[in-house]
Design a protein around this nucleic acid. Sequence first.
DNA 1: CCCCAGGTTCTGG
DNA 2: CCAGAACATGGG
Length: 285
Amino acid sequence: MSHIHRFPLPSPDDFDAQQTLDCGQAFRFQLQEDGSYAGVAGSHPCRIWQEGAAVVVECSCNEDDCAPFWRRYLDLGRDYGALKLILRQDPVMEKAVSFCPGMRLLRQDEWETLCSFILSQNNNIKRIKGIIATLCKEFGQKLHGGQYAFPAPRDLAGRTLGELGVLRAGFRAKYLLDAAQKVASGELELRALYSVPLGEAKERLMTIHGVGPKVADCVLLYGFGKVECIPKDVWIKRALAILYPGGFPAALEAVGGLAQQYLFHYCRTCPQALEEPRALAGAGI
DNA sequence: CCCCAGGTTCTGG
DNA sequence: CCAGAACATGGG
């Protein structure tokens, strides 16, 4: 059984599957020969692509109507046209947004986001994807289409470090285990983080061994939809230092996480992004 | 052999 | 409090 969902957007610029699903915020989508992306969102195996000014989702779930899930997952309630207009008033963001205007923030499962970014530390995206694929295949429930669900906290909490060895996750395995045990036991209740102040939520996440400020910000941004969180990874630190020597514009801080994602993808994908200011300076200003 | 990768923890001042 | 090293693993 498979449903096709078609979500119209104001502009064809408001969604691009590659820019959204392969920009380092989600790790479970793979480019297909037809240009669509196949993967798992939450517990939904799916394919996602764009057709003109619409996002199209094919999913094989047995829910009567999973459209609300997709609206939330794809952040369809947010007016990206208006937001991009605001961001583009800043000359640096103008370039970043122009580079990937179809990028959107995904609202992913909180637990999966936590694990994903624990595994991301001091690691590269290619290998992060591999570890997560193995994690799902080894410990997750089997779904339609040869896909696997992301393992629940309970699925991992009782495992030993030896059992997690198949992941080849290195020192991150013990962090994953600590997260699973704290969440499965109720010591850390993820849903409860919605009802406490942001700083408190971040501190609670950081009680997990292996979760520092950057990973916590990623979880809050990609899992809890807190767009004011700005994960400071090596790329963003470089970008801020070079492109915003005078500091990040205060007017954009309220949507700093979104700006961060455009910048991250721009700087990581386009090598000249961080070189141009040097060239200008060299030209004598 | 080196260095690096969407960091965090540990250690020595 | 703060700078460096250590941490597992795979790729260049």
